[in-house]
Design a protein around this nucleic acid. Sequence first.
DNA 1: GCCGCCCGGATCGCATACAATCGCTGCGTT
DNA 2: AACGCAGCGATTGTATGCGATCCGGGCGGC
Lengths: 241, 241
Amino acid sequence: MSLATIPDPDGRQTADDRTQAIRDHLRDAIVDRRLAPGTKLTETEVGALFNVSRTMARSALQMLSFEGLVRIERNRGAFVANPDPGEARQVFAARRLVEPGIAAAACAQATPRDLARLRAHLADERRHMDLRGPSARRAEIKASGEFHLLLAEASGNQILHRFMEELIARSSLVIALYGRSGASSCGHDEHGGIVDALERRDAAAAQALVVRHIDHIEADLDLDQGRTTSLKAALSSLRPT
Amino acid sequence: MSLATIPDPDGRQTADDRTQAIRDHLRDAIVDRRLAPGTKLTETEVGALFNVSRTMARSALQMLSFEGLVRIERNRGAFVANPDPGEARQVFAARRLVEPGIAAAACAQATPRDLARLRAHLADERRHMDLRGPSARRAEIKASGEFHLLLAEASGNQILHRFMEELIARSSLVIALYGRSGASSCGHDEHGGIVDALERRDAAAAQALVVRHIDHIEADLDLDQGRTTSLKAALSSLRPT
DNA sequence: GCCGCCCGGATCGCATACAATCGCTGCGTT
DNA sequence: AACGCAGCGATTGTATGCGATCCGGGCGGC
């Protein structure tokens, strides 16, 4: 029954913000699709799951709504976001705008430490790729997202990093929703190529590779599926339980 | 004494979210420098100013901290952000990355309605430019920011629009902090040129003009002033009252 | 006289309590 | 039988209370 457990339930070790921890757990659950899009997240329920009061649950949900992973309707409650194809396209349009620039910046700014972390991450990704099955696919999506986050970190710009955090989280949700399962593993080699470009400090190449990479990810999506009617779109907002 | 008043204090007219209104008022006050950077924003005090309880004040402050306009220190309180030159540079680096792309997107997506609104805004800006004095300068900074927001709106991408909202707010703060007063009015003609390019659907020109525009804004800043020591930087975090 | 320590006030963190709102169910009416 | 409406349960919106934490000032020791 438990969705996730706080590392230290008696609440001392965790030190600073427990609400932060709740938010992270919920975000993971959403991005991993352990929480289906459209699911209602009752404040009381969330609070009970994490052994905190509604205050904290509410706070965490509000944070997630800022990130676009949760939709809050006044006097109705919070629901796991259920991005329609249009929203999905916007997410990727934003990535297409932002990420090449981040790659270029990372080319100029990346420290050896950054590069090492990227390399280490590539190894992680390869490990996930060897596995099969739905949980492996989840892990793969998550790892793939983390690569882009590391890239943003390497750019040395905290603001862009935070933007990317949001974009990656929403992308993961979109991929989980609309991804054709088949080709999603193609990403890894492209990641490697990007790191190569970074190490050569070849900004133009890095940018081009990132654009191609995003193209590939988006091409793997099936964003035309729900195109029946506007009624369907309206219904998709309801909880599928 | 009153910082700002809620349109309808008895709290009916405002309809949906009062915390939203509080956040907007505070943001305006910060961006306008009616609240000096470093000022402590006590939950109780904010609540009293807007006739709400700490709960709402806290919520509004938390939103602002997400936007980077307020810094929250655990068990200490909320303070108006006091961006150091490094942070200022990150803000503008982010804008330099994002805005040209937005301009290009706007070239492709802008509706006649968008263009009309941009034109109307240009007229507003010209009106502000004719006035002199500190309050006029504030209005000018704000109007200048709104132009970029309209541009983001014209791009048709809500996500990018929200990113720009944050960047513009932080930019306004940075300009207010580090701007040399003299040349800031140069921006207007550039705005006009950008709209011209949009109307011609000339994406390349629009991008180039936006980049030049951001260059000019940033060139007008004096980001080397606090370069004495790291001690100075540490002290700048304290409240100047 | 200077330094470190302890204590008090202020402020936040979080929980709980009360009020407002919404959707739903069941009844009465047409 | 279908529609409209009123009461009710559930859930959120908002306020307040209590304990925890941190900063600053006063006191004692060195």
